[in-house]
Design a protein around this nucleic acid. Structure first.
Length: 328
DNA sequence: AACGCGTACAACCGCCAAACG
DNA sequence: CCGTTTGGCGGTTGTACGCGT
């Protein structure tokens, strides 16, 4: 038969560890090591589950652990690795001596995610939101794109009003570089200077993104309704139309010479330095690392993100050396 | 001073693959 | 080979703390 249970669940204590418990566990492990977690609480005189002891040791008590703030360099490594590996916290933590997967995960969820969002970067895909909007827009009919654009602009307006009325705000003109927002292409194809907006608190886009999602759902629903009528051929852009006029949404842009993407949203929004020609086609590249270790699309994305960070912000200025993890 | 809210982080939960008997 | 436990992992929850009103 199998093994005996790791602990009697009834007599097991839960919740915060006391300094006394920490001391008991630490001194027991110092003497006997961590060979059998089932026996450790029993032998150390602890009313804890072996699993709880293991977590306490690996996440907090281990002498080689680093406590305290993450450095800029550590944050950069996390962001870069996350862009390639996703939520593989243990692999990411393995590249950061003294940090546990729990540390990295917590730091990501509480700080880095918001930091990226505040910079206009989607923390899941590590692409600029404008880029994602462009990708979404390529799948929609222009009337629905207009709807989506309206929803997005409404969100931005709300955000600005919120900032102007609730928080100290410092707006200054800058040369057109990527920071919190990408330079916008005007109707005549020229770029507008971006605004460098700083406030006491970073702009948190969580709510904004939710609003955009709602707008998008609306657009998709309308798109489905629209698709049920024969007239939906009107928005088929495959015949090369690159200008037009829809209620509430004007655009007139030169052709970029890409097949299958006549989306005005794509062309107007995805023009920052992070968008390559391929990007402008709104392609999505789920494959991150190939078996030969050749540079994958994911790595290119990671490099794009990294290079974008380095343009205007020392914090994210990570050297473009190879990733430490041999898997990558 | 009291309260509410947001943040940071410790701890727990559930799942899965590997190991064990 | 099979049933069970262990260890590891990622997601989620709980809670202490700080700050603003």
């Amino acid at each position: 038969m199998g093994r005996i249970p790791c602990c009697e669940k009834e007599s097991v204590k839960k919740g915060q560890w006391t300094p006394e418990e920490d001391h008991k566990l630490s001194s027991y492990i110092a003497q006997h090591g961590t060979r059998n977690w089932r026996l450790i609480p029993k032998n150390a005189g602890l009313q804890r589950c072996g699993k709880s002891c293991r977590l306490r040791w690996t996440n907090y008590l281990r002498p080689d652990l680093k406590h305290g703030q993450f450095s800029d360099a550590e944050e950069q490594i996390i962001v870069r690795l996350h862009s390639v590996l996703g939520n593989r916290w243990s692999v990411i933590a393995a590249q950061l001596p003294g940090r546990t997967d729990n540390d990295v995960k917590n730091h990501w969820n509480t700080k880095l995610k918001k930091k990226l969002s505040g910079m206009g970067i989607d923390p899941v895909t590590h692409k600029p939101y404008s880029h994602l909007m462009a990708e979404i827009a390529t799948t929609l009919a222009p009337p629905q794109v207009a709807n989506l654009a309206e929803a997005t602009l409404g969100c931005l307006k709300d955000e600005m009003l919120h900032l102007l009325t609730k928080k100290h705000i410092d707006i200054q003109f800058q040369s057109p570089v990527v920071h919190h927002a990408q330079p916008m292409i005007n109707n005549n194809g020229t770029t507008s200077p971006s605004y460098h907006i700083t406030s006491k608190h970073e702009v948190n886009d969580d709510n904004t993104i939710e609003k955009i999602k709602i707008g998008l759902s609306r657009a998709i629903i309308q798109d489905q309704d629209h698709a049920s009528t024969p007239s939906n051929k009107l928005w088929d852009m495959s015949h090369g139309a690159t200008s037009g006029h829809f209620p509430g949404f004007h655009y007139a842009l030169p052709s970029f010479g890409h097949e299958g993407d006549g989306s005005p949203w794509s062309q107007s929004m995805c023009t920052g330095s992070t968008c390559t020609a391929g990007d402008q086609q709104g392609q999505f590249h789920p494959k991150m690392v190939d078996e030969n270790g050749d540079e994958s699309e994911g790595e290119k994305d990671a490099r794009n993100v990294s290079s974008m960070f380095s343009q205007d912000c020392d914090l994210w200025d990570l050297p473009s050396n190879d990733l430490m993890n041999p898997l990558v």
